[in-house]
Write a protein that binds this DNA or RNA. Sequence first.
DNA 1: ATAAATTTGTTATATTATAACAATGCGTAA
DNA 2: TTACGCATTGTTATAATATAACAAATTTAT
Lengths: 132, 132
Amino acid sequence: MTQKIDFLSKNQQIVLEIIEKAKEPLKAYSILFSVQKRGIKAPPQVYRALDRLIKLGKIHKIESKNAFVACKNDSCTISNATAFSICDSCEMVTEISNPKLSKYLANFQDETGMRYNKYNLEFFGLCKKCKK
Amino acid sequence: MTQKIDFLSKNQQIVLEIIEKAKEPLKAYSILFSVQKRGIKAPPQVYRALDRLIKLGKIHKIESKNAFVACKNDSCTISNATAFSICDSCEMVTEISNPKLSKYLANFQDETGMRYNKYNLEFFGLCKKCKK
DNA sequence: ATAAATTTGTTATATTATAACAATGCGTAA
DNA sequence: TTACGCATTGTTATAATATAACAAATTTAT
Ligand SMILES: [Zn+2]
Ligand SMILES: [Zn+2]
Ligand SMILES: [Zn+2]
Ligand SMILES: [Zn+2]
């Protein structure tokens, strides 16, 4: 059978909704705790939903934080090319969508000629608010 | 007292040696197992050594793998600006040292004008060997 | 309708990382 | 020198993150 690519299961919808509502990246277990009333009882249910949502480009994982954010790029068709801005102080995370940057990285070729079909870039610094 | 910045403790030397010898990224617990004969008995000892070595730019953490590699850039003075090439098939990881790339990223400025003092970039694809 | 395959639920456990405190070493002021 | 303070290292315990394994339910194919 061919995989359904445009339908979200109940668990996936619940998890996505929580992540979209959040103002900051959410950890898997904090998601688990906040959806237990809605019938999601165990880690694998959360992790499966997260995996699926990542594959669909609906959410991204912030690797340096083991946390998850909703994609802000109108459902990222390029979930394999992600860039984030992370504040070291308030931990705010925002997805960078900068055509020049993504073009540059998508076309990047190293010395050996290896080409890449996926990248993840995480920038760290102080956000405007925290710099003051 | 001011911090010593150029001296490695015994544990740090042992951990660094193991990582430098390895041909692939090492996980913290695999490091722990392989240094237990040498007197390192518990996770915090390994994690402390890793933290220190990271700060010194002697090693880097591959965030997407929770694994550690030795810096190949002659002791990275720019441990805060890292880029890696990761093969999805054989899991080979190599540090990218490309002046153009690092310059581009170091100077990158997003829409809001936020500037960054640190970044980590992980590229994924198939290495030459695995592409054949 | 039945069997096969896929997805979801559940239990258990593996893996990664840190908290908390004790023991040790080390510089310094009396 | 000694004894006090502070930093580093060792140790125990536990927290946080993630997956394996199998059962139950649902969907799909025959
Ligand atoms: Zn996105
Ligand atoms: Zn901030
Ligand atoms: Zn390096
Ligand atoms: Zn390869």
